[in-house]
Design a protein around this nucleic acid. Structure first.
Lengths: 258, 258
DNA sequence: TTTCTATTCTGTAATATTTACGCAATTATT
DNA sequence: AATAATTGCGTAAATATTACAGAATAGAAA
């Protein structure tokens, strides 16, 4: 959405095409070079950084909306995406602060009761992507973005710091119950790779021998006959997720520690 | 809400006081006589049974709304209540079926585009109560209720069977991570009581020796010097939750099996 | 008072899982 | 051929989980 008329139409008539009072906020975790980052956007009309998000079309299934919003932003369609919480406990704070700044930019086209200023519940989703493969799109409403280390998140819009915190908590919980990694690693990966992925997400060290033993025992990954050359003195074996066991684990949930 | 004018005002003008497009649906689990049941209501204008639920006031915090709705229905205010999922993937099915039946009852006061017929996302909460202590209120919209065994849930309105299934799944997951029971048992309880509570919720047998050993080892409960007389040949010791450890477990989450 | 019965209470051994830990093998480089 | 960096593998100890049964208690009945 970039053309001026399109934007104005969205602001003025968006409530006809989208559900008002509800938005989707995504915490997009990016993993790259053993760092865990989240995508932040600079929303126009706001001084600080905020999470990517969007609205649900009037007759669009919720899950579809979440994927669409993510795809519009990252160009990725196959990724791990999971709803984790609805935030709606600060109805006063949420939109009031934004209104003044926003109207300053848009001026006359926005009335006080514009749908974008109404109280909005936020449905939180978290996603996992390899951020080197992502092609971030900005638009009229977002003029900048950056990947922010999860340990250095600045003050965010609205109540979004709470959203990020909870997303991280849920991600760390999910990693114990679901075989996360499928969407964060190349199809074939090495033990050191998946090992440091898990360490990064959990933010703690895991014994690499016990770790790989566990994944192999659970049958989540299987060793291939190939190895990869990735530099001096390094030719680790490649592994692959075991599709069948992986799917089963996704449904059943895994109960385990590392 | 029972007076005729009140109801009509709610139907016609409710969209001004409540957030349209979003509702709260509660799966209220009742535990009594070693059975796990859920509360179902007969909504007027619908032929089948449905979950209790309601709408969020325009400036009411979400959590507060969930508690209010529950309190209006059960008269209970201190209970275990937890959000577990937002349902919004069947935008077509959700309200269309209801509309015809509903309008048949209400007739002329409802127009096609009445806010109650619009697409509505449903935020799912589950609660735990002792149903013998609950005083269920029906109102203009609900002319009957019953406590339904979780294993015999009939076909419900909209997509609510999915809601119930997921609630049960989440409850069973929660029981592994959170010291559930605080709100389902009297302050002082016996081992057999809490033992059968857990068995009922999980739907499987748990070795009673290992079970109590576990709860005591985790420090969640502590033995009192009192016993209770509950009938012939029965004077079990009483136990109590250990507040401090309990709170910590609520925050940290427990990882364990029984 | 004694006996009987229903219920509560408790302990230990076998098994499985998790943790801790270090060195040998491999491969590219020199 | 020697070296250095990295990967790969095994075992023992500690901990947690499971399986399992009989003794003790309290009230009821004789």
């Amino acid at each position: 959405m970039n053309a001026q008329e399109e934007v104005i139409d969205f602001v003025i008539n968006g409530h006809k095409d989208y559900l008002p009072h509800v938005s989707i906020d995504s915490v997009i975790f990016g993993y790259h070079h053993q760092q865990l980052k989240i995508l932040l956007l600079k929303w126009i009309g706001h001084s600080g950084w905020g999470l990517p998000g969007g609205f649900i079309k009037s007759r669009e299934p919720l899950t579809e909306a979440a994927y669409r919003i993510l795809k519009e932003r990252t160009r990725l369609s196959d990724l791990f995406l999971q709803q984790f919480h609805v935030f709606g406990d600060s109805p006063y704070r949420v939109r009031e602060r934004s209104q003044a700044e926003f109207r300053e930019k848009f001026g006359p086209i926005t009335s006080e009761d514009n749908w974008l200023f109404q109280r909005t519940l936020s449905i939180g989703y978290f996603a996992l992507v390899d951020y080197s493969k992502v092609d971030i799109t900005t638009d009229f409403f977002t003029d900048d973005f950056y990947w922010c280390d999860v340990n250095e998140v600045p003050f965010l819009l609205f109540d979004q710091n709470e959203v990020v915190e909870m997303a991280l908590k849920m991600l760390r919980l999910a990693i114990y119950h679901q075989p996360i990694g499928y969407n964060l690693l190349p199809e074939k990966f090495t033990i050191p790779e998946i090992h440091s992925l898990y360490q990064t997400i959990l933010g703690k060290e895991l014994d690499q021998r016990n770790f790989s033993k566990k994944l192999l025992t659970l049958g989540l990954i299987k060793k291939l006959d190939e190895r990869r050359n990735i530099g001096p003195h390094r030719s680790p074996y490649l592994y692959q997720f075991d599709k069948a066991n992986y799917e089963e684990a996704l449904n059943q949930g895994i109960v385990h520690t590392y």
